[in-house]
């Protein structure tokens, strides 16, 4: 295997008393789509911005494309593509004007019209930035991240503010980047996004990576079981549910319950008995495979959107 595109060793960064990144280590290989999954405040953005050269780390070792982003300056910035959160570009400029402006910062630049077509913004080409919908503005900001045709692109929560259809379009675009051999580092708090796009996912919480593997391996390692989900307004507690036959773990969020079972028919039987005995209603019951969301809940005790 060739040298990793990104190498991070024991990275730390604090803001005052808050330890935003508390000792993070990982590597990203060439051509990989690497996801960072976690709730807001988990340290994803700080980590990524250190890799982009926008923030200076307190300690640890960072190598990106064989350079130290903190000290390599413009040389480094030529080679990477960056998408940041919450950038409100020049409101009075038109889409194509902004793309050419950013293109002019680089020696190697993508064709403006090709980028517009790639992002599906053809009919918004002459629209002012202020007139774009959230999803369109987000697609433009992804377009700007690849205006220099970089080997490595960082996308920080690119699907924020998008409706489900727009999000799927964006996923196709990111898969297109991968097909062209780009390395993509992606932060998200949508587990579906991570599951669909990422070769490997680092699950972050409180400034640490608490799990790192491919999405399917993460699920497999944490859950050999399937989940039963239902809503019940009263009478059933997570403790009661944990006692049911073949249950490995149970989690409740208010009246919404999830129980993981190694033997669905047995668990289901004993659940129905318990509900009947207590007179507890069972609504919206379904059985499904475990997901990254479950992994996150199991590892941190919180959901991603907390």
């Amino acid at each position: 295997m060739s040298t990793p595109v990104i190498q991070v060793r024991d990275l730390r960064k604090a803001y005052g008393d808050l330890q935003a990144v508390a000792g993070v280590s990982f590597e990203v290989a060439e051509g990989e789509v690497f996801g960072m999954l976690g709730p807001n405040g988990a340290g994803k953005t700080t980590t990524v911005e250190i890799l982009e050269g926008l923030r200076i780390r307190d300690s640890g070792e960072v190598g990106v494309l064989g350079m130290d982003p903190a000290t390599s300056g413009r040389e480094f910035k030529r080679l990477v593509g960056v998408q940041l959160q919450q950038v409100a570009l020049y409101p009075r400029l038109r889409v194509h004007e902004v793309i050419s402006l950013f293109g002019s910062f680089y020696e190697q630049q993508a064709e403006t019209e090709e980028l517009i077509a790639l992002m599906g913004l053809e009919d918004r080409r002459n629209a002012r930035i202020a007139e774009l919908s959230g999803g369109q503005a987000q697609r433009l900001s992804v377009a700007l991240a690849v205006v220099n045709m970089p080997r490595l692109v960082f996308l920080d929560e690119p699907s924020t503010g998008m409706d489900p259809q727009a999000r799927r379009n964006l996923w196709d675009i990111i898969e297109g980047f991968k097909a062209k051999g780009m390395t993509v580092v992606l932060t998200t708090h949508y587990m579906e996004e991570a599951e669909r796009l990422c070769d490997r996912v680092a699950v972050m919480d409180h400034g640490r990576i608490i799990a790192l593997d491919s999405p399917s391996a993460l699920v497999r390692e944490n859950f050999a079981e399937d989940a039963i989900e239902f809503v019940s307004n009263d009478g059933l507690s997570a403790n009661d549910l944990g006692e049911l036959a073949a249950v490995t773990s149970a989690a409740s969020q208010g009246s919404a319950h999830s129980i993981f079972s190694s033997d669905i028919p047995r668990t289901m039987g004993s659940l129905l008995d318990l509900a009947q005995e207590r007179g507890a209603p069972l609504e919206g019951m379904r059985v499904r495979h475990a997901t990254l969301e479950d992994v996150f809940l199991k590892l941190t005790g919180r959901t991603l959107r907390d």
Binding site: E52, Y90, Y106
Partner: peptide, 10 residues
């Protein structure tokens, strides 16, 4: 945050 975005370019 456009300045920040620009600071990520050369």
């Amino acid at each position: 945050r456009v300045l920040r975005r620009l600071s990520a370019t050369p």
